[in-house]
Amino acid sequence: MDEREFMRGRVYGADHEDAGPRPGRSYAELVGGPLDGLLLDVTGRPERATGEQVALGTELGRYGPGGRALYAPRSPDGRHYDWRGDAP
């Protein structure tokens, strides 16, 4: 199993031992880019913030350690966030 397949369905930023989704939380799926297939916990985000782009730290992107992957919601429901590029 490769690294991307291993990460699919896991929650971004969660501990490796407990990286699955939790009951009672809301998640958006990250689509494309270095974090493809991970889930982003959006529980409790203000309605206004769910439509905004997010910059997520990752070592897997173009800029390596310290870099960020940029994702923006695909639609107003915020269920999928599409990759927009990488940033230092």
Rank of each mutant, 00 (worst) to 15 (best):
G85A: 06
P23M: 00
F6N: 03
P65V: 03
P34T: 02
G85K: 10
R62G: 00
S75L: 11
R8G: 00
H16S: 11
T43K: 10
E29D: 02
E47P: 15
M7H: 12
A19L: 02
P76V: 05
P73D: 04
A19D: 15
G66R: 10
Y12Q: 02
D36M: 02
G64N: 09
R62A: 04
G24Y: 11
M1Y: 08
D41F: 06
V11I: 09
G64H: 11
P21E: 05
Q53A: 14
T43H: 11
G33Y: 10
P88M: 03
G64C: 08
L56R: 08
A49Y: 08
E3L: 09
V31K: 12
G32A: 01
L56V: 05
P46G: 10
G44I: 01
E59M: 02
R48C: 04
E17L: 08
G24M: 10
P88A: 12
V54I: 08
E47Y: 02
A87T: 13
M7N: 09
R45W: 15
R25H: 15
T43F: 11
H80V: 01
M7F: 11
V11H: 11
L70Y: 07
G51S: 14
G44K: 07
D15A: 08
E59W: 02
G13K: 06
G66N: 07
G78R: 14
R25V: 00
G44P: 13
G24D: 10
G37I: 02
P46W: 01
D82H: 12
A69W: 11
V42I: 15
P76A: 13
E29Y: 04
L40V: 03
